[in-house]
């Protein structure tokens, strides 16, 4: 166990310092910097969300090299990829609502308002009839009775030159 560990450590040190001649022959530069798979820049927008962070940094590196060239030589896909990676709608720039969501919110609100309207009408339809004292006849009769009794003679219905309606409130 101990021997195996030491061996592994030795091998790792060899990898880092490239002291192993066999390794140098095999081409240590490509092994020291693991070659990342090239991500096609033409469709970065579609697959950006699925890329791992390593693949994203590989795209970053590709773009960094590309943008050192004359910008007039860049293809429109490369320009789009450069813009999308920096300022596209992902990460903190994800739009807070998808297109069509506002319409759904409007529909939901309208449906709720309709339900409350139906409830309002239904409850009022089921309610008992208003009391017998709330109608025009009863209230005129109350006025007559008030005048009969000289009710409120200073400011009320029995006062001189009274113009108000007295007890009449319903049409």
């Amino acid at each position: 166990m101990q021997a195996a560990l030491r061996l592994a450590r030795q091998q790792r040190r060899c990898l880092v310092t490239t002291a192993n001649p066999a390794h140098v022959l095999a081409g240590s530069t490509s092994a020291a910097v693991p070659k990342r798979p090239l991500i096609p820049l033409s469709n970065v927008e579609a697959q950006w969300d699925k890329l791992t962070s390593e693949e994203r940094s590989s795209v970053h590196d590709q773009l960094e090299v590309l943008m050192k060239k004359d910008w007039k030589e860049l293809s429109i896909d490369e320009k789009k990829a450069a813009y999308y990676v920096s300022f596209g709608p992902h990460g903190p720039r994800t739009p807070s609502s998808k297109p069509g969501e506002n319409f759904k919110v409007f529909l939901g609100t309208a449906a709720l308002l309709g339900v409350t309207g139906i409830l309002f009408i239904g409850i009022r339809a089921l309610a008992p009839a208003p009391p017998k004292t709330i109608n025009k006849e009863w209230e005129t009769a109350m006025n007559e009775r008030g005048l009969e009794q000289k009710m409120n003679p200073i400011t009320g219905i029995s006062s001189e030159g009274y113009k108000g309606k007295g007890f009449v409130v319903s049409k």
Binding site: M67, K68, W71, K79, S86, F87
Partner: peptide
């Protein structure tokens, strides 16, 4: 932006 080789920032300026 051209000097620091960043195309997207140049586009962003116009935006």
């Amino acid at each position: 932006a051209r000097r620091v080789n960043d195309y997207s920032t140049a586009v962003r300026i116009f935006e």
